[in-house]
């Protein structure tokens, strides 16, 4: 048996990055009071648009931009439907997922079997050469670090900035925020587009780094895990990181234990992140902390009311 943290941590960080990115985006969206269940659809769309951009330009960086753009455009459709035309958010979100899966399959038809340009791992001076810590933490590709930077940025934005406070106010009570003169619909649209871009980035990470190739339906439920993570984290960024690494960690751990020849009950480990989520929800509601959900979450807003 040869399982060490040096082996596991890098795999864990790579496996968790897509759901962390998508989860962060959805967290901001839900903080603004919008429930977008279309994360899976936006992720898979980002996976193919990112892949297309990277293959046709030869640049992984442009690929990630393309992924973010693809996710953002799809999110904008959701935004126009739910904020402009006041459609039901749950139904629209689910439709967005189905639409994204189909659209990506269509777009990707001539891209199966192609190889994307290689995304290099960063080599940071000094840090990457540290013994033990270096290979564990400091030899990843740029997106892994970008996801962590994004996490800190989202945390600081929501917690310590005035626009962040406004966004939270809109999510907690849109009528009050409207009365104070804030443009609820515009703020929500911006949050939705941000959420789409982050989901698209997560998808592009799958098709450009983690797999790396395009195959239809390749997100295989990662978007739903990202959605669950937001609830698991009680709409707070730092627990989101813990949750993402827990989900990614357990997946990687069970695969590694099998590969190392350790007898593990595979089914039990596979379902454990979901069990933990349910447990966290039960504990939270028992403690009365379920109020972590934004007050106006999922409710349509129109200035006339």
């Amino acid at each position: 048996m040869d399982i060490s943290l040096i082996n596991l941590i890098p795999l864990l960080m790579a496996a968790s990055t897509p759901i962390l990115l998508a989860g962060l985006g959805e967290l901001v969206v839900e903080k603004s009071g919008v429930l977008n269940l279309g994360v899976e659809g936006m992720m898979i769309t980002g996976a193919i648009t990112g892949f297309m951009a990277a293959v046709s330009t030869g640049s992984p960086a442009l690929g990630f931009l393309g992924g973010a753009a693809g996710g953002a455009v799809l999110a904008l459709v959701f935004g126009v439907l739910t904020q402009g035309l006041m459609s039901n958010q749950v139904a629209t979100g689910l439709a967005l997922t189905l639409f994204g899966l189909g659209l990506s399959a269509l777009l990707g038809q001539s891209f199966t079997g192609l190889k994307p340009p290689h995304t290099p791992d960063l080599h940071l001076p000094v840090l990457s050469d540290l013994p033990v810590i270096g290979p564990m933490l400091f030899r990843h590709d740029a997106m892994v670090y970008l996801s962590l930077v994004a996490l800190v940025a989202v945390w600081a934005f929501l917690r310590h900035s005035r626009p962040g406070l406004i966004l939270r106010a809109v999510g907690e009570n849109h009528a009050a925020a409207h009365a104070l003169g804030y443009r609820v619909t515009r703020i929500r649209l911006l949050a939705i587009v941000f959420g789409g871009a982050m989901a698209g980035l997560g998808g592009a990470y799958l098709s450009l780094v983690r797999v790396p190739q395009w195959t239809e339906g390749m997100t295989a439920g990662a978007g739903w895990i990202a959605l669950a993570l937001v609830v698991f984290a009680a709409w707070r960024p730092v627990p989101l990181l813990i949750g993402a690494y827990l989900f990614g960690g357990i997946t990687v751990l069970q695969l590694n234990m099998q590969a190392a020849g350790v007898n593990v009950p595979v089914e039990l480990l596979s379902m454990s992140p979901y069990l933990v989520t349910i447990l966290v929800l039960v504990v939270m509601s028992a403690l009365g902390a379920a109020a972590g959900a934004p007050g106006s979450l999922g409710r349509a807003f129109h200035a006339s009311r």
Partner: peptide, 23 residues
């Protein structure tokens, strides 16, 4: 042997391959 409990999940297949190589 690594059991994946799926016929088709590219990310999981890739992770499992990586895990085997690490071992």
């Amino acid at each position: 042997v690594v059991w994946l409990n799926t016929w088709y999940d590219p990310a999981k297949e890739a992770d499992a391959t990586q895990a085997l190589l690490e071992q």
